[in-house]
Computed example of a mutant assay.
Amino acid sequence: MNGPLSNPGGINGHPNMGVADEQTMAAVKAMSAVMESCPGKTAVSGVMGFALGGAFGLFMASMSYDTPLSTNPTAATIQSLPLRQQIKQGFKDLGTRSLSSAKNFGKVGAIFSGTECCIEGFRAKNDLANGVMAGCITGGVLAAPAGPQAALVGCAGFAAFSAAIDSYMRRPSDGD
């Protein structure tokens, strides 16, 4: 009898090690299948973008401690409030800015990753053009509510940024 249960001692004397190894391999295969699918890549990119955006927003909001509470020039600034209200308002503002940044980063990550994956599947190639086209579509979609001129500028800007990042990531390393 062959297989992981044929050896009563298991691998390295552990009776369940063969079964655990098969379970681990099945989990790795399942994760690989998810990560190779466009919906899986889109979801992971959105979640990771949300987390990165939240951290970035938290950092940026913590650095802008001297901003007024609103854009109204006659409104009270945070320095004119009592300490307890300053702290409360500061944390509220920190959370609001972090959430806003997290949503934006998550949206950009999901749109770009999903678009690039679809383009790669359609073209059946993995090259620089996929990222440039995905960048153009992402930038255009994100800027579209501001009008066609903004969509065109967003397309060009995000495509250029995507080309720069992708070409940097694709360059050969020093060890090659």
Results as ranks from 00 to 15, higher is better:
residue 41 K to G: 02
residue 43 A to V: 08
residue 43 A to C: 08
residue 44 V to S: 05
residue 45 S to I: 06
residue 45 S to E: 08
residue 48 M to G: 10
residue 50 F to E: 01
residue 51 A to D: 05
residue 51 A to K: 00
residue 53 G to D: 00
residue 56 F to Q: 08
residue 57 G to W: 01
residue 57 G to T: 02
residue 58 L to W: 09
residue 59 F to R: 14
residue 63 M to Q: 11
residue 63 M to S: 09
residue 66 D to G: 11
residue 66 D to L: 11
residue 68 P to F: 09
residue 69 L to A: 01
residue 71 T to C: 14
residue 72 N to Y: 08
residue 74 T to W: 13
residue 76 A to L: 12
residue 77 T to K: 02
residue 78 I to L: 05
residue 79 Q to C: 05
residue 80 S to T: 11
residue 82 P to K: 02
residue 86 Q to A: 08
residue 89 Q to P: 09
residue 94 L to D: 12
residue 95 G to V: 02
residue 97 R to N: 05
residue 99 L to W: 10
residue 99 L to Q: 09
residue 102 A to Y: 04
residue 104 N to H: 15
residue 106 G to E: 02
residue 106 G to Q: 02
residue 108 V to C: 10
residue 108 V to I: 12
residue 110 A to L: 10
residue 111 I to V: 14
residue 113 S to W: 01
residue 117 C to N: 00
residue 118 C to P: 00
residue 119 I to N: 04
residue 119 I to V: 10
residue 121 G to R: 10
residue 125 K to E: 06
residue 126 N to K: 15
residue 126 N to L: 13
residue 126 N to E: 09
residue 128 L to D: 09
residue 128 L to K: 07
residue 129 A to I: 12
residue 133 M to Y: 13
residue 137 I to F: 07
residue 142 L to M: 04
residue 143 A to L: 04
residue 148 P to I: 00
residue 149 Q to G: 13
residue 149 Q to E: 13
residue 150 A to D: 00
residue 154 G to S: 03
residue 156 A to V: 13
residue 157 G to F: 04
residue 161 F to Y: 11
residue 163 A to Y: 13
residue 163 A to W: 13
residue 166 D to F: 14
residue 166 D to P: 15
residue 167 S to M: 15
residue 169 M to T: 15
